[in-house]
Design a protein around this nucleic acid. Structure first.
Length: 529
DNA sequence: CTTGTCTGCCCC
DNA sequence: ATTCTGC
DNA sequence: GCAGAATGGGCAGACAAG
C-alpha cells in the first residue's frame, strides 16, 4: 500500500503556490501541473477544494479585501501586539486588569476600521499596512505612515452608474457640480517621481510604464518647470494624429504591451487628464475637486493630439435639458457619456469608493438612447457557484433573412434576476436539441453545453458593437473573416410579441455599428480592424 | 517554423 | 465591464 | 448602500502541439 504523503502545512502550501506563480518558460506548464498534482494528492478532506479555488483566484468564502480590512481593524483594536514573539505577546483588551467594556470598544473599532480602510486605499500594500499596525499605530498615526505618495498607486476613485438624468438631479441638487466627458480608453494614473522618473499605473494598479514610453515622453515635456513630483488621474485614448480623431477602444487594445519602443508604436494615444491627487509632495486628496482641477491645469500644458484635459462644463444648479445636451455632445465627440462630480461640497478624492461624489451617465443606461436588440437564445452554458443547477449564461443570435440562418452576436450572463434564471432554466430544459440546428452559424469556440430550439425572443441591451473574431453576425461585412459582436450585453426581458424570425436583422446590426461616432467618418473602416 | 489554445493580481 | 441580492 | 458573486467582448503574450 502506498504511503500517504505528509499532511499539508500552511507554510508548505504557501511556498508551493509561490513556486507555481513564478514558474515560467519552456515546459513550465508541465512543472505547474506536477506541483498541483502533488498538492492535491497530499490534501485531505476539503483541502483539495480550497487548493483548486486558490489556484483559480476564486476562494468564494464571502470574504474579500474590505472584510479583511475590517477584521484587521477589529483585531488591532481588541488586542495589542507586544514586544516579544509568540501568542503570549498579545494583550487582549477585553480581559485582564485594564479591560474595556464592549460599549467602550465599539467606537474605537469603528474609528479604527475607517483609519485602516483609508490607509489601505492610499497605500494598498498589506506588507506596509500590517507592519504599521504591528508598530502599534492607529488613527491619524497610521495615516502618517500609510498616506498617498509617488511610486505607490492609489486605488482610483470610481463612479456609480446612474439610471437617468432624473436620478442625477436627486443626487446633485443643491450642490455645485461639474460634468466631464467620459472617454473610452484605459484609466492611467501617472506618477511623476521626478522629471526623469515617470510611471503609469492601470485601474487595477498594474504598472503599465513599459507599455507607454510615448506617454512618458510627452508628459515629461508638458510638465510645468516647477513640478518635481505629482500624481495625475487620466484616460489614455487611441488617437488618429493625422485626422485629429478619437479612435475606438478596440483599436487601443491592439497596442503591444512589452518591450515597446517609441519608434515602432503603431497606435498613438492622447492623454485626457481630469484630476490630480498630489503635487510636489503635497497630498491633494482632501481638497475639493475645483481646487485639484486648478492645480492640474497649472502643472500640465496641453500638447496638440497628445495631452489635453477632459472636456467639462460646470453647473451651479440642476438643468436637465443642459445635461442632456452636454451628454449628446459627448456622444458625438466619440465619448461614452458623462462623469458627474461635485465641485466643492463632498468633493474630495475618495480612493476606490464608489461614493456619491462621482456618477457616470452613459447612453446605454438611458431608456430609448441605447442600442436595444432582439435576439434568440440558441444555446446555454451550465452555471457555476451560486448558479449551479441552472444555466449560467446563454448564447444569443439574430436572424439573417438573406442567408436564412441564425448568427451569434454575444453571450449573456447578466441582467437575470434569480427568478429569471429559474424560469429560463425550466422553460429551456424542455426545448433542448441534441445538436445545433442546420441553420445555426456558430463558431466552434462558442459551442454551448446544450443547444436550444429557436423558440423565444429576448430583448437585450448593449453599450457598443465591435468587430468580433468569434461572432458570426454580418460576417465579412465590416472586416474580412470577422463578424460583429456586442459589448457589455445584458438581458432585459422576454419579447412574447415576436417570433425568432422577427429578431433584429443583420442589416440593422451593421447600421448600428456604423452609427457609432468613433467608427463613422472613416471610409476604410476595414483598415482599422 | 506555423498554428492552436489558454491566460491575464488583463483591459473595458 | 453590468447586474442582482443578502445584509 | 456596501460587499460579494454571478456573468459579458476581446486583445497581446505565452506556451503547447504539430
Amino acid at each position: 500500500m502506498l504511503m500517504m504523503p505528509p499532511k499539508l502545512t500552511i507554510a508548505k502550501v504557501f511556498s508551493e503556490m509561490k513556486a507555481i506563480a513564478h514558474s515560467a518558460g519552456k515546459e513550465s506548464q508541465k512543472a505547474k501541473k506536477e506541483k498541483i498534482q502533488k498538492l492535491l494528492v497530499a490534501s485531505r478532506g476539503e483541502e483539495a477544494k480550497f487548493i483548486v479555488r486558490m489556484l483559480q483566484a476564486k476562494l468564494r468564502i464571502g470574504i474579500q479585501i474590505p472584510t479583511l480590512l475590517q477584521a484587521l481593524a477589529y483585531a488591532f483594536t481588541l488586542t495589542k501586539p507586544g514586544k516579544s514573539c509568540g501568542p503570549a505577546a498579545v494583550t487582549d483588551r477585553r480581559h485582564g486588569q485594564a479591560k474595556l467594556s464592549a460599549a467602550e470598544l465599539e467606537p474605537q473599532m469603528i474609528g479604527m476600521e475607517a483609519a485602516v480602510k483609508q490607509a489601505f486605499s492610499e497605500m494598498p500594500n498589506f506588507d506596509k499596512l500590517v507592519a504599521a499596525l504591528m508598530e502599534g499605530r492607529d488613527g491619524s498615526s497610521l495615516l502618517q505612515v500609510c498616506s498617498i505618495s509617488v511610486g505607490v498607486p492609489v486605488k482610483p476613485m470610481l463612479a456609480k452608474p446612474s439610471k437617468g438624468i432624473a436620478e442625477v438631479g436627486e443626487r446633485l441638487s443643491g450642490k455645485r457640480f461639474t460634468g466631464e466627458w467620459k472617454y473610452d480608453g484605459e484609466r492611467a494614473q501617472i506618477h511623476v517621481l521626478s522629471k526623469d522618473v515617470i510611471q503609469i499605473y492601470s485601474r487595477n494598479s498594474e504598472n503599465m510604464t513599459e507599455k507607454y514610453p510615448d506617454v512618458i515622453e510627452v508628459v515629461k515635456q508638458s510638465l510645468a518647470e516647477d513640478v518635481q513630483s505629482c500624481i495625475i488621474d487620466s484616460e489614455l485614448v487611441a488617437f488618429d494624429q493625422v485626422n485629429r480623431k478619437i479612435l475606438p477602444f478596440q483599436v487601443l487594445t491592439t497596442r503591444g504591451r512589452k518591450n515597446i519602443t517609441v519608434e515602432d508604436i503603431k497606435v498613438n494615444v492622447c492623454l485626457f487628464a481630469f484630476d490630480c491627487m498630489l503635487v510636489n509632495g503635497q497630498p491633494l486628496v482632501k481638497e475639493p475637486l475645483e481646487l485639484r482641477r486648478e492645480k492640474l491645469w497649472s502643472i500640465l500644458s496641453p500638447a496638440e493630439g497628445k495631452v489635453t484635459f477632459a472636456v467639462y462644463r460646470n453647473f451651479n444648479e440642476i438643468n436637465e435639458e443642459e445635461i442632456q445636451a452636454f451628454l449628446d455632445e459627448s456622444i458625438a465627440g466619440s465619448c461614452e457619456g458623462l462623469m458627474l462630480k461635485t465641485l466643492t461640497e463632498n468633493a474630495t478624492y475618495e480612493p476606490s469608493k464608489r461614493s456619491l461624489n462621482w456618477l457616470k451617465l452613459k447612453k446605454d443606461y438611458l431608456e430609448g438612447m441605447a442600442d436595444s436588440i432582439d435576439v434568440v437564445p440558441i444555446g446555454a452554458y451550465y452555471g457555476k457557484g451560486k448558479r449551479s443547477g441552472a444555466y449560467g449564461a446563454y448564447l444569443l443570435a439574430i436572424y439573417d433573412q438573406e442567408n436564412e440562418e441564425f448568427q451569434t452576436v454575444c453571450k449573456a450572463g447578466t441582467g437575470f434576476s434569480d427568478e429569471d434564471l429559474t424560469t429560463h432554466y425550466s422553460f429551456f430544459k424542455n426545448h433542448q436539441r441534441p445538436c445545433a440546428e442546420t441553420n445555426y452559424n456558430v463558431n466552434d469556440k462558442l459551442k454551448p453545453d446544450v443547444w436550444l430550439e429557436p423558440c423565444q425572443v429576448w430583448e437585450i441591451r448593449a453599450a457598443d458593437l465591435s468587430i468580433s473574431p468569434v461572432h458570426t453576425s454580418a460576417f465579412g461585412v465590416k472586416a474580412d473573416g470577422k463578424g460583429i459582436g456586442l459589448r457589455f450585453p445584458r438581458f432585459l426581458r422576454i419579447r412574447d410579441d415576436k417570433t425568432p424570425e422577427e429578431s433584429t436583422g443583420s442589416e440593422q446590426i451593421v447600421e448600428m455599428f456604423e452609427a457609432q461616432a468613433s467608427v463613422s467618418g472613416t471610409a476604410a473602416v476595414d483598415d482599422d480592424f
